[in-house]
């Protein structure tokens, strides 16, 4: 039983006046099982962001399909997309994307408000979540009053509060210092340990080394795959960096 099944994704961008065509994804296929924690790595321009945008239903593929719990999200009608994303997906962004005009609490509750959840239910969900993330004291503050790490934890809370099938994270440590990054990665591991499926796109070897499985994308294709198994994150770190070196050196895929 897989939760996410990506089949033969292809995406070609055409410049505005139809001149040049850029192939961002040529043929991407992989699947994610429930409770998995997958990191996708690749250099700039390898198609990571395009892939994530398609998974997030922010962009449409030129070809191929994406099945979430067996439902093809590429075929979802325009009208239902927003509701679908709210109910099934949680997002964590590099630049947090918190709204300055809302308090931390209101930022977290935003998806629930949009889905029309009653206020009593909201507080019921918010309390344990904020305790788990250690932000219960920050709820009344505003995004510009708290640190980057705190902001990202608020953003994680916002992603989790809808109990999504899948959490999509786009370079979640990109704007954080190393201590905050470590904290966040530990947090992701904890969340994952509770059964939350996570798909993370990242540049950072350190961040990726916390994942259970790492996919490498190169030139718009899944180039290589690493399973962490019983390895410590340090050993995983070594393995990932070896693989990256090999990819950079232009070697062929093994395994």
């Amino acid at each position: 039983m897989t939760i996410l099944d990506v089949r033969n994704l292809k995406k070609i961008y055409t410049t505005r006046f139809g001149g040049n065509q850029v192939q961002a994804l040529s043929d991407v296929s992989f699947s994610v099982d429930p409770g998995e924690y997958v990191a996708i790595m690749g250099e700039s321009g390898s198609g990571k962001t395009t892939l994530l945008n398609i998974l997030a239903v922010l962009d449409q593929p030129t070809n191929g399909e994406v099945l979430l719990n067996g439902k093809n999200i590429v075929a979802i009608r325009e009208k239902e997309i927003s509701a679908f994303r709210r109910n099934n997906l949680g997002f964590v962004f590099q630049d947090f994307n918190l709204l300055d005009t809302f308090s931390v609490q209101d930022n977290i509750l935003l998806p629930l408000v949009l889905s029309g959840v009653p206020y009593a239910e909201m507080t019921h969900r918010l309390r344990p979540l904020s305790e788990m993330l250690g932000i219960e004291k920050l709820l009344g503050k505003f995004p510009y009053e708290i640190s980057g790490g705190q902001k990202q934890r608020a953003a994680v809370a916002r992603a989790l509060i809808t109990n999504p099938q899948l959490v999509l994270a786009d370079e979640p440590t990109g704007a954080l210092d190393s201590r905050a990054s470590d904290g966040l990665m530990t947090l992701f591991e904890n969340i994952n340990a509770k059964g939350q499926t996570i798909l993370m796109v990242t540049h950072s070897i350190k961040a990726a080394s916390h994942a259970k499985r790492v996919l490498f994308i190169k030139d718009g294709m899944v180039f290589h795959e690493l399973h962490r198994g019983e390895l410590s994150s340090e050993a995983m770190f070594q393995k990932i960096s070896d693989t990256l070196t090999m990819i950079a050196a232009g070697g062929e895929s093994n395994e």
Partner: peptide
């Protein structure tokens, strides 16, 4: 920018 964020979080064009 604010509406850009809201769109990402799950607010559709109509809303």
């Amino acid at each position: 920018d604010r509406y850009g964020i809201m769109r990402k979080v799950g607010l559709n064009q109509k809303e």
